[in-house]
Design a protein around this nucleic acid. Structure first.
Length: 383
RNA sequence: GGAGAGUUGGCUGAGCGGUCAAAAGCAGCAGACUGUAAAUCUGCCGGGCCACGCCCUACGGAGGUUCGAAUCCUCCACUCUCCA
């Protein structure tokens, strides 16, 4: 039974242009998936999010099982019905929280005992419970329950963790009974031999897609890129490849060039809330004094609501004064920027010009002084 | 007219003989953020310099006591509270 269909449409070097057909629409890849941990892409209403146009978003098993709880979610129509979202949803298994909430958990063969970061109550997550919850949440793509080892631990420990993740991977697949697609997760830290072993092991299991996990956990950028470039080609060619938790616009370009199809990252949304905006000419810290009376649009090459309708000066004012609208405007822009970037990448693969697209993008970001372009179009007045 | 309290860096406000260029918060300036415990966190924040150290100017003003004062004394100015 096909939970999803993966159709490869074109290639450009190692880069792939494809589509993933789900019960909630078709996802054009390479794709960036905005993170909506708690069934919400922070600061956006579902309607605002929908207008930005992502074809798939993330949810998180760990966070949603604690609040509002899977029983309630299931009763209220799963995450789709609950948040009134009719496009695809991919859920993280909670594996990452085993890493990020390491101070309050105990990992055993059976699964992970942990204490809620909210009220300290005891909970248990295993391949079986994680998959069960993800299925009951009604997501389109579930992730295997894995252990995400911290950066910096030794080869022996990573190997032991890897073997556990592999056993959990098989148990995750065995536990899958519903309509959700299931992706396996390759681990192995920064060690090539372990990554290779994991890619072969996970790639050999009948998953619907394969993810590279265990990156963006504090390792230097070069390590991340090395792991990605080494591992991506080892993954099955006939399934979606997902690089978990990555990354910056530059990372996405590198990932696509290495053959990655799917990405997710909190960066556009979190940075937006913290006033760090991605633009075609590089990062903008909107709180900087230099924007105090800057009437130009944030990014003249962006057509999002934020860039069309308000000035840098206004965005700075909203941010500096702590207005909620600052986060809304900033998130709308950053998510739009990421989605636009992926759209551009997709077109460039289809026309065999990814390298040129990438070079043009990077040269603008690197050389592009924030104020280099004096001839921005005026702000569109709202009537 | 009488009694009392107070005057500290942009603001609020600690300090009450040396460890004070002066706590803390705010404001200001800048940086970080990569499967979200994040509308969070970090740094700088009197001036100058051949700056991991030195110099100058600083705690209302002017004198004084002391080896040493934002801190003690005297006078002056101003502010606030209460009683007439």
């Amino acid at each position: 039974m096909n939970r999803i269909a993966f159709n490869l449409l074109a290639t450009d070097g190692a880069a792939r242009r494809s589509e993933i057909v789900t019960r909630h629409g078709t996802i054009q890849t390479p794709v960036f998936m905005p993170v909506g941990t708690l069934a919400s892409v922070k600061s956006l209403t579902t309607d605002q999010l929908r207008q930005l146009g992502p074809e798939v978003i993330l949810n998180n098993t760990y966070h949603l099982m604690l609040r509002p709880g899977v029983d309630l979610l299931e009763r209220l129509g799963g995450v789709h019905g609950f948040m009134n979202w009719d496009r695809a949803v991919l859920s993280d298994s909670g594996g990452f929280q085993v890493f990020s909430l390491a101070s309050i958990r105990k990992v055993r063969e059976e699964g992970v005992e942990f204490r809620s970061h909210i009220d300290g109550s005891a909970h248990f997550l295993s391949p079986e419970t994680s998959i069960d919850i993800q299925q009951r949440m009604g997501v389109d793509i579930a992730m295997a329950f894995d252990e995400c080892p911290a950066y910096g631990i030794g080869h022996t420990e990573v190997e032991r963790s890897l073997e556990l993740t592999h056993r959990w991977a098989r148990r995750s697949l065995a536990a899958r009974t519903g309509a959700a697609a299931l992706f396996g997760i390759v681990q192995g830290g920064i060690h090539h031999d372990l990554r290779k072993r994991s890619a072969e092991e996970i790639g050999g299991i009948d998953f619907d897609g394969v993810a590279i996990g265990g990156v963006s956990v504090g390792e230097p950028k070069e390590e991340m890129l090395d792991v990605m470039r080494f591992t991506a080609p080892l993954l099955p060619a006939d399934k979606p490849r997902y690089l978990m938790g990555v990354g910056t616009p530059e990372d996405l370009l590198d990932g696509v060039a290495a053959g990655i199809d799917m990405f997710d990252c909190v960066m556009p949304t979190r940075n937006a809330r913290n006033g760090s905006l991605f633009t075609s000419y590089g990062k903008v810290a909107i709180k900087n004094a230099r924007y105090a009376d800057d009437e130009r649009p944030l990014d003249p090459h962006c057509s999002c609501v934020t860039c069309r309708t308000v000035s840098r000066a206004y965005l700075r004012h909203l941010f500096v004064t702590g207005e909620i609208a600052a986060m809304v405007y900033n998130t709308i822009h950053n998510v739009s920027f990421y989605l636009d970037l992926m759209r551009g990448i997709r077109h460039s693969i289809a026309s065999n010009s990814l390298q040129a697209f990438r070079d043009a993008f990077l040269s603008r970001v690197v050389s592009g002084e924030v104020d280099a372009d004096d001839k921005e179009p005026p702000i569109e007045r709202i009537r």
